[in-house]
Design a protein around this nucleic acid. Structure first.
Length: 507
RNA sequence: GGGCCGCUAGCUCAACUGGCAGAGCAUCGGACUUUUAAUCCGCUGGUUGCGGGUUCGAGUCCCGCGCGGCCUACCA
């Protein structure tokens, strides 16, 4: 490199295109202020949304002047300058509308503003609704009002933003330019609304229980730990709202539900985000058969709200959410999958381990029959269940909060709803016998002491509530993110969460 | 945690076996009163994710690291 001009070279390198663009736009901000225009005004009063205008004038003849005046607003997403005539395109809430701007129609201040406009700015326009020569519905403004000057460029108008990392980290950009991103989150909102509507109609009351828990409970999972300074106490982000909700049942609230976040400090995947949304509900006097009926209704209601039908396609394959769903005991599925009709929870451990080995299913020494059968089910069966299936009667050993089956000693009255090969809901006839519950907790505590990091600990506050008396109760948990994935037909949970958890960027 | 793949201009992408880092769009300047990704003319824009190494020469090959994606493992 020549020793002559190193300074210049360095300055050129520092002045990248992006910095140049931002500097140019800042200069426009200064120019506007110098001209007495505030580039970041405090308020604007549109008389119609872009969607209103489109709805009101569905098919004007080309070259119509309606005489109707309106004031609209949106983000400027396209600019086409043809000398004394300019076409602008505003976008508001996913709806685009053209502004037809012959220079002569604008007042003087608006003409000046027009020169300083960039794609990405927020803009208001007041004028007449017209259709252009080609029949494009437009507003022909007499005045333009800058609502906010954008300093950064929008992604490519044609190719949009496709870099997945950028889409997750800068979701606002994704939402501006990718219609499909909006579609998913609009669908998600309709699903949430449908779930709440169904619960409300059934007399469930929505409650909010703590997300900061003194001890983690309600699920087998590793928690996030945090610390409260004033209390000088460690707290855990909740892994499930279950125990608090059942305390409300004990307190005499007969039907409660909560839709909110839980947090699990575990692996991430296309189906697992560290924070995720669950619907949990508890209903006094109900058993898990009642809860299956409720679950069917919720899924059908959500599908109707999202898609207008219970017949859908997921990743190219048909699924029907029309009730009733298939109901089949877990043990039966494992017997089919292994070809061992004699398989049972009372089998010798050695023999069950042999079945595992025959199917290349990993097992560990501390596991009892229930855990071994569950492992077989998860390895061999779960991913094969495409149509909605209630898998019934999970082993007691792996279900510390579920009541024992009314007629079979080794299993609980618990089901999971499996769809498209993955779990979508988990529910049971709740365990309401406080002494049985204490024994289950103690078994969990022993497992934890033996190294099982996901095992539960004894929750005395919950046991006290149970000792007060918990009526027969049916409980349900639904993975809302997965339900939205199913209905939106997306394969990655990060596509249904606005701001998915990502590794923080170092700088 | 493991395997594979990716990271090049603001965005979307090229660059053969190692041989001058390019295009389109956007930006900037100019023309244009009916466009629809407007068109036309001209210009500008680079630490090729980061750090080493090999080589006369590295976007390209090697090593390490970072971030992401997919698969897998884990995961009620």
């Amino acid at each position: 490199m020549e020793p002559d001009q190193p300074e210049d070279q360095r300055e050129d390198a520092a002045g990248s295109k992006l910095e140049e663009i931002i500097a140019t736009r800042r200069a426009k901000v200064a120019e506007l202020r110098a001209a007495g225009v505030e580039p970041y005004p405090v308020r604007f009063a549109p008389t119609a949304t872009l969607a209103d205008i489109r709805a009101r004038y569905p098919d004007l003849e080309p070259q119509t002047d309606t005489g109707a005046r309106c004031t609209v607003a949106g983000r400027l997403v396209q600019v086409r300058r043809l000398g004394k005539l300019t076409f602008l395109v505003l976008r508001e809430d996913g709806v685009d509308l053209q502004l037809f701007c012959p220079r002569a129609a604008l007042d003087e201040a608006s003409r000046q503003l027009l020169e300083l406009l960039d794609v990405g700015d927020w803009l208001g326009a007041a004028g007449e609704v017209v259709a252009t020569k080609t029949g494009e519905l437009s507003v022909k403004p007499a005045t333009l009002t800058l609502l906010s000057k954008g300093l950064r460029p929008l992604p490519d108008k044609w190719h949009g933003l496709s870099d997945t990392e950028a889409r997750f980290r800068q979701r606002e950009l994704d939402l501006v330019v990718n219609a499909d991103a909006r579609r998913v989150f609009e669908l998600r909102a309709r699903v949430l609304g449908a779930l709440r509507a169904e619960m409300e109609e059934r007399g469930f009351v929505e409650v909010e229980t703590p997300m900061l828990h003194p001890i983690p409970g309600g699920a087998a999972a590793r928690p996030f730990v945090t610390h409260h300074n004033a209390l000088d106490a460690d707290l855990y982000l909740r892994i499930a709202p279950e125990l608090y909700l059942k305390r409300l049942i004990a307190g005499g609230l007969p039907r409660v539900y909560e839709i909110n976040r839980s947090f699990r400090n575990e692996g991430m995947s296309t189906r697992h985000n560290p924070e995720f949304t669950m619907l949990e509900s508890y209903e006094a006097y109900a058993d898990y058969h009642d809860v299956m009926d409720l679950t069917e209704a919720l899924f059908a209601r959500a599908a109707q709200a999202a898609l207008g039908t219970t017949e859908l396609t997921y990743q190219g394959r048909a699924v029907s959410l029309a009730a009733p769903f298939r109901r089949v005991p877990l043990l039966e599925l494992v017997r089919e999958a292994t070809g061992r009709a004699d398989l049972h929870y009372r089998m010798e451990l050695a023999e069950l381990r042999g079945v595992c080995e025959a199917h290349e299913v990993h097992w560990e020494a501390p596991w009892g029959a229930g855990k071994l059968v569950l492992e077989l089910y998860e390895a061999l069966v779960e991913h094969t269940l495409w149509e909605p299936t209630f898998v019934l009667d999970y082993p007691v050993e792996v279900s510390p909060l579920a009541r024992r089956h009314r007629s079979e000693a080794e299993v609980t009255e618990r089901f999971e709803l499996i769809l498209v090969g993955r779990e979508h809901a988990n529910a049971f006839s709740e365990l309401i016998d406080p002494d049985d519950q204490r024994g289950r907790f103690e078994a969990q505590a022993r497992a934890k002491a033996a190294g099982d990091e996901e095992a539960m600990v004894v929750d005395e506050a919950y046991l006290r509530a149970m000792e007060l008396g918990l009526p027969p109760t049916g409980g349900l948990g639904v993975g809302v993110d997965r339900l939205v994935m199913l209905l939106a037909d997306v394969a990655n949970i990060r596509d249904v969460i606005l701001f998915p958890t990502l590794r923080p960027q170092r700088d």
